[in-house]
């Protein structure tokens, strides 16, 4: 699984993505008990043009919608996960997915969501939404989930 997780407040840069890729992957932490009983998080999905990390004008309203779900005064974390189709190299796609997620993070920040509440995940082409066809345009996406 190719996945990169960064906190947006650290000003995600491509260099960070590259250096992070060489880090040793520690064993996953056990899930907390309360997380196990939490409901399935809600989500919103934005799609992207091939090879692009620009938010489409029609998706600005989706970002507005996501921002209008955020509640103050609690440690809610919005997770922004970027992904790509399988066109191109795996490394390029990893970087592209980070750029897409970063664009969405900036969009949420520009709507007043505190950066420390945003978590950026770059999946590259590793977890296609449409597994039967990894090149499917629906895999060029950023999913926003919260809990």
């Amino acid at each position: 699984m190719r996945t990169i997780i960064l906190f947006a407040s650290l000003a995600v840069a491509l260099a960070a993505v590259t250096s992070a890729a060489s880090a040793q992957p520690p064993a996953p932490a056990p899930a907390q008990a309360q997380d196990a009983q939490a409901k399935q998080p809600d989500s919103l999905v934005l799609y992207f043009a091939s090879g692009r990390a620009t938010i489409r004008p029609q998706d600005e309203a989706l970002l507005d919608k996501a921002a209008r779900l955020y509640r103050d005064g609690q440690p809610i974390v919005m997770i922004v996960s970027g992904a790509t189709d399988s066109v191109g190299s795996a490394t390029q796609n990893l970087q592209l997915s980070a750029l897409r997620a970063n664009a969405v993070v900036h969009g949420l920040e520009s709507r007043g969501i505190p950066a420390e509440h945003l978590q950026l995940v770059a999946k590259g082409e590793s977890e296609p939404a449409v597994q039967a066809n990894a090149a499917d345009e629906r895999n060029r996406r950023v999913e926003i989930t919260w809990r």
Binding site: M1, I4, I5, A23, Q24, P26, P28, A29
Partner: peptide, 8 residues
């Protein structure tokens, strides 16, 4: 190749 980091 797993590139996951910082999970712990």
């Amino acid at each position: 190749m797993a590139l996951t980091f910082a999970r712990r």
